[in-house]
Design a protein around this nucleic acid. Sequence first.
DNA 1: GAGCCTCGAGATCT
DNA 2: CTCGAGGCTC
Length: 275
Amino acid sequence: MPENCPACGATVIRFEGEVAYRCDNINCPARIKESLIFFASREAMDIEGMGPAVVEQLVDRNLVNNVADLYRLSLEDLLTLDKTGQKKATNLFEAIEASKSRPLSRLLHALGIRFVGGKTARILAEQYRDIDVIATLSEESLVQIPEIGVKIATSVVSFFNEPENLETIEKLKAAGVNTREAEPTVVDGKLTGKTLVLTGALESLTRSEASELIEKHGGKVSSSVSRKTDYVVAGADPGSKLDKAIKLGVTILTESEFLEIVGNKGQVGTMSARQ
DNA sequence: GAGCCTCGAGATCT
DNA sequence: CTCGAGGCTC
């Protein structure tokens, strides 16, 4: 039985097992609003002051029809928003301006490419450092990258094959939005070429802090133990990854041995140094 | 041994 | 979602 999108009336398909339906109309106002809210959100382009209420008005007044239009808004446009005087309008204007210099990884995330979230966006940005390069990648080369499989590769390729998306990217560039990533800053290469796996809870670091430390020292974090794993860092209550490490003879590090190597003993994760 | 399948673990996801 | 392990066939 066909259903219709409540916002635009287009016929939608409800996939088996999926909670929500998907409207395929690229011009559906509900979709445009969602993409803008996500684009401006804290985890994406982080445009302070631009939430659902502001987006709603911008779209309804036809001031904005896609993410690139945000950068064409004038102070006068913003002054037309409800309960918005000089102060609020200026703040919003400056927040939009400031978002132009976000790193490429944030922009990639913000574009809303299916299956490309913060982590995958960071991987792509660090590896290629230029959106124009990423736009020309083939599915075959994308799949070579660890953590990227066929689903993500297909999604990325099809996103950059869409003329409408390429046009939006050109408009963003023309508006002065940053589309490149700086060279990665590796402080020293103590873990260069090494693959590490984390298991169990660490006492002085969160998982992402530990990953960040490893990457900063040139190492790679993997999610499962194999013969290619160099070290397993075992915290409290480790999972099956520790058993596998023992079985494969992979070197196991305690938390303090790990901190010794990265030379950050007591300098990270002070938040939860003691429980 | 290569190729293909299913499965579980762990991380990620507009 | 991705990946590796284990099981199976040829």
